[in-house]
Nucleic acid binder design. Sequence first.
DNA 1: ACTATAGGTGTACGTTGTACACTTGTCAAG
DNA 2: CTTGACAAGTGTACAACGTACACCTATAGT
Lengths: 218, 218
Amino acid sequence: MKQMTATRKPLSRARVLAAAVALADEAGLEAFSMRGLAQELGVVPMALYKHVANKEELLDGMVDIVFSEIELPPEDLDWRPAMRRRAISTREALRRHSWAIGMMESRHPGSANLRNHNAVMGCLRKAGFSFKLAIHAYSVQDAYIYGFALQERDTGFETPDSAGKAAQSRAQTIGGALESYPYLTEIARKLPESAYDNAAEFAWGLDLILDGLERLLR
Amino acid sequence: MKQMTATRKPLSRARVLAAAVALADEAGLEAFSMRGLAQELGVVPMALYKHVANKEELLDGMVDIVFSEIELPPEDLDWRPAMRRRAISTREALRRHSWAIGMMESRHPGSANLRNHNAVMGCLRKAGFSFKLAIHAYSVQDAYIYGFALQERDTGFETPDSAGKAAQSRAQTIGGALESYPYLTEIARKLPESAYDNAAEFAWGLDLILDGLERLLR
DNA sequence: ACTATAGGTGTACGTTGTACACTTGTCAAG
DNA sequence: CTTGACAAGTGTACAACGTACACCTATAGT
């Protein structure tokens, strides 16, 4: 075992998971590999399998870390601000870990996942939502949150650079037929100068949904 | 070239794309490979590269096929039923091609994509939505549609079988601490007997959003 | 009849996840 | 103090993937 004890503290499942999340954050899911992760940890690839069954299980654990970063609906708040907080917290977690966006509900659920879902459902039920209405309310909100995160990842330009690249890519497909898409050209013209803000956009739709729910609750 | 002309009509980009969509539909994105597709077409893997630049470009084309299956907002309808129709049509296309769910807005846009976006934006603008309100309206709706499709794929049990499997998987994580998650157990108890219907659930949230938009338009 | 070209083939390389057999550092029981 | 079990890290190897590159061949235009 060469010089391990001197140079390196031993691995652990937690250390592997943390490094995996960090690597996926900066490299993206596409470039995230067991081999790359091993290298990051200064270890041979197969060493990881002493702490994690396989890549699938590793991803399960990573997703549960993301869930653990999401703020639970605060118990001391009314349902509406509580839901608002947790929705915003969820979006922020997904921004930090955009590789997780398609995977939040598709993987073997971990304990942070269960705690989260239980708390959200509990918040609604305790606020007086009937079971059926609570299911509806949960469904719309999560669909919106996950869907918004998806769109933000795909078209969300924080850098004006990437906005330019996307526009160019579109222009390439459009070719000479620009006049066929008048409403797209309107977007291309007006959006850049409209101080579009992802967080504000998210809140706008969220409040529209919460308004609707509030009306139905009464 | 052996017996090609006798046994097999020549490939074409369209044929490759169609076969790719069909294969992804039944095998899932994970199991979808260039080699598998080639086999399906009775051809050696490298033959595909005469009609498609690489796998990425192939996926771009596949996604645009999905877009082409989405009904445009009918011109002769008022904005609200028109938006409703195209939302439902989008969900249905995504159910048919669930491998496309995370990719609709992330890939190099094809012409069906552009036509679709232009038509949706046009429908809103012509109905009197201001530019900013149209952007908001578009954003909420699409976030909801894509997010719902995602959840439906991940937790949508059309077979009571898969519902059982999911429940068992959850129970395994919960272990003995079932009483820690009272609201999850409520769901597990009540949902199965509540005739939950994905299409109806989708329409419920969609109408909530459209209600909100209608109020803001006036 | 000749040749350019489009379409299909065969081989090969680098990268991936991971099975399996191995070494080695640590520690408990005799 | 020895022993031997066990946990952790190593090394080799394999199948499957995307695809570069050189090659063949059937057809079409001159």
